[in-house]
Amino acid sequence: MTSITSQKTGARRPSHAPLPDGSRKRGGRPWGLPWIMPAFVFVVGLLYYCIIETGYLSTLDWDGTSPTPTSVGLGNYSEILQDPIFWKAIWHTVVFFVVTFTVQTAIGFVFAALLHSKVKLGAVYKVLVFTPVVLAPATMAPVFRQMFAADGQLNWALDHIGLGFLAQPWLAQSSTAMPVIMFITVWQFTGLTFVLYFAAMGQIDPETLEAARTDGASNLRVLVSIVWPGVRGTTVALAMLGVIGALKTFDVPYLVTIGGPNYSTEFLGTYIYRISIPSAHVGYGAALSILLLILALIGAIAVAARANRKDGESSV
């Protein structure tokens, strides 16, 4: 690794030199390698050992402590492909991602736009939508179990606004447990989406907005054709994080429903935990983790590729 780095850095131009002239297309931009190297070396140096170690463990049948692990080659992987719970978890992840990402993005975006407008008591709303982000799922899980219990506050509220027929034991049924998990996730992460959109909207040129308004564009029109494209970078970043996050989903389903009832809220993250820690199938868990890594990268690259294609179309 050291040799690669020095080769590359050897070829770089001095970073403090003036920006050279010349067309950008011919690579006239200054060399950026020294700028990214600190972060790269730091992240790769600290975490790649974990990835390599996990990759190695994934070829073992091992309980994590026994002095004699058995090598099984790719056996764990072929077993996973026939594991119905794995496929169930993948399916849950897909549904979960589509729903939570859409809802979170819509709400976070609208919130950010509304709170950039002249709304009274803005700080109060900001704190309320942000607070869930900082609350640890471990402490909130019992609160949610209580809220969604058969005699919980949600059913109580439904009763009192004349929707009593909707009351049900939300977490006890396979059909409603997943929507509850999605609700909690959206509740928890909208604040994040909001904060990022709020920051991104600060980058939109007020003069453009002003010009559009002078041309008689409505609020909705401004939102759709100026603000939304203006924060696309953030949307793409959030989509990539969303894919990775959905695959890693662990806290909420593990703490609220323990993946149940009957695996109806099982995700890759909860499955990996259950397999590697309580069941101590360290090798199988490592193989699941490596598959998770690959799927997450494929998903994130797909999002990025799609975004690039769109960029190409729109920048005619």
Partner: peptide, 13 residues
Amino acid sequence: MQEGALGVQQYPD
């Protein structure tokens, strides 16, 4: 059994 038992945990619920 209480209603909704399948969504309840022994501790703390």
